[in-house]
Design a protein around this nucleic acid. Structure first.
Lengths: 300, 300
DNA sequence: GATTTTATTTGTCCAGGACAAAAGAGGTGA
DNA sequence: TCACCTCTTTTGTCCTGGACAAATAAAATC
């Protein structure tokens, strides 16, 4: 069996590290250290790709590449999350642990059923706040610690999305404000957006879900076409922080002044405040923002 | 109001054209023709970005960049789809046209309700084959012709996904084969995958939906963990054709020989056959493939 | 201890050359 | 007319190595 190797494009695809970054790391730190094929092009062995994925994971937690690339192999799971982790780890809820166990056992049907039961018992709002949100935290943490595989996280996300969507569909049509929910290109994480949609819909807002990955100019056009009062975006931790401010400024400038711009998600934690953009630090704040809007627009 | 300009990274984000391509086009064809900012970096005006998006759209239809970049502004909607378009344009169904009209009117609730009705009347299989598939064609065509905005396509996709998912959720658990459905990184289009899931589930297969954008190695691990009989992937026309063969070969090599690999979607049309990979030209062929598998594995 | 200043780290951009895979054009034979 | 082979052009991707500004850490000052 041929040891499979990766082209630089394949590494970019599977790690999320750009070709430029891969080349400059090699030049500066000596890692990765790919061999060359007959054509002089980089050819990455699988184990280096694996290590790069681990490095990317630790970087999303706040570690710096210089340290990670210098340290040998001992940089494994020994590294604790370095992000200023204010939030205390969620209380070790036995039922949540059970749900995690179902995912780990790859029991899709069992997980979905358990989630439905929990939803029926808690109601949608508490389900989102007390079940989905902490579960997402737990799964994210387990993945960062290497206890969850990528596909296990995907399965969790996909099944949870289904439960949420199904529940949202049963809600009556909202009366306002009109909220447009989406994310920018290269930001595919939609679970946070769905949780927000559930909460906003419960509060009687009229949500227009446009899925993920809308180019900025199209977000503007959609807002005009739908006469949206508020545009709500989400950025995950995996999104390059560096690009966020420029993006939001561009969007804010293009959006008519009457429309509000709300942004949430883990990727916003390290972004400085931007004029005319409301940064939502969590779901509680999202609900508060809606109440504020209602207070400021009494007649609608 | 400042005319907003784009950095090269923003253009890549919003057009899907890589930085390398943008630079080499500029060198070879003289377009795009960005000005430079104080720092010597490219700064693209909005109208050039708009034209680039149009060019990308026409390229996905089979046009070649050399012609498109030489032609002046007359390259507008006058260019017909150049793809060997075997499929006759779907019969102008009045009801489908009505559904298109609802999207065009941005009537999300009305569209969703109309789709639900249609689903109830037709049943899931005919709904997928006779409603969703032709609608997706129509929307794609309208978008290519410039009659639909990006956000209108997104709205259609998002709402249709919801209807399909909801319907899939009501189906009883399948008995086999176990089918793992997903797509590779940078391929976010999920509607085709969902339609396939609906059809396969109707035929009694056990579908494991993992959402989109799974790195190759994780697809392999997921297949092992779930003991999947078949891995089914989808590539849209927007996915870079050039990368597909290498990707599939890598996946095929890493996947144990007993597992089948099925691939569908518009992006496969121009890909030559690959050993050990079953290319599905349409949904009818997908159903046939499942029947074949059943015939070859009688005892399960 | 809090805030400003300096130093280091780090990602992105640039130019322009090279090359192989894909697509078209042209030619040959059934 | 159609299928198949060969040659030419087109086109996307990769390469090197330099440069710089934004982000971060470290040092210095109040």
């Amino acid at each position: 069996m041929s040891t499979l190797t990766y082209t630089i494009a394949a590494v970019e695809r599977d790690t999320g590290l750009s070709k430029d970054v891969l080349r400059v790391w090699e030049r500066r730190y000596g890692f990765p250290n790919p061999s060359r094929d007959a054509n002089g092009e980089r050819s990455y062995p699988a184990d280096q790709v694996e290590r790069l994925r681990q490095i990317k994971r630790l970087m999303d937690q706040g570690h710096r590449p210089g340290k990670l690339l210098a340290a040998p192999f001992a940089s494994l799971a020994e590294l604790a999350p370095r992000r200023p982790d204010n939030r205390c780890p969620p209380a070790p809820d036995h039922e949540l642990a059970e749900l995690m166990g179902l995912i780990k056992a790859h029991d899709a049907a069992g997980f979905q059923q358990a989630m439905q039961q929990r939803l029926a018992r808690q109601g949608l709002q508490r389900f989102v706040l007390d079940s989905v949100a902490p579960l997402a935290e737990l799964v994210g943490g387990a993945w960062e610690a290497g206890r969850f595989e990528v596909f296990e996280e995907h399965l969790f996300t996909e099944l949870t999305k289904r439960v949420l969507r199904q529940s949202i569909a049963t809600l009556p049509a909202g009366r306002g404000p009109r909220l447009l929910l989406t994310s920018v290109p290269n930001e595919e994480h939609v679970l946070g957006l769905l949780m927000a949609e559930a909460l906003f819909s419960l509060e009687g807002a009229e949500c227009i879900p446009l899925g993920t990955q809308m180019p900025v100019i199209d977000i503007v056009r959609a807002a005009e076409a739908h006469a949206a009062d508020i545009v709500a975006l989400s950025f995950s931790v995996a999104f390059p922080t560096r690009q966020i401010p420029g993006l939001l400024q561009q969007l804010r400038a293009a959006l008519s002044a009457g429309r509000e711009l709300w942004v949430g998600g883990g990727g916003m934690a390290r972004v400085p405040p931007i004029d005319g953009v409301r940064s939502l630090g969590g779901f509680a704040e999202a609900i508060a923002a809606l109440a504020d809007w209602r207070a400021a627009h009494p007649q609608q």
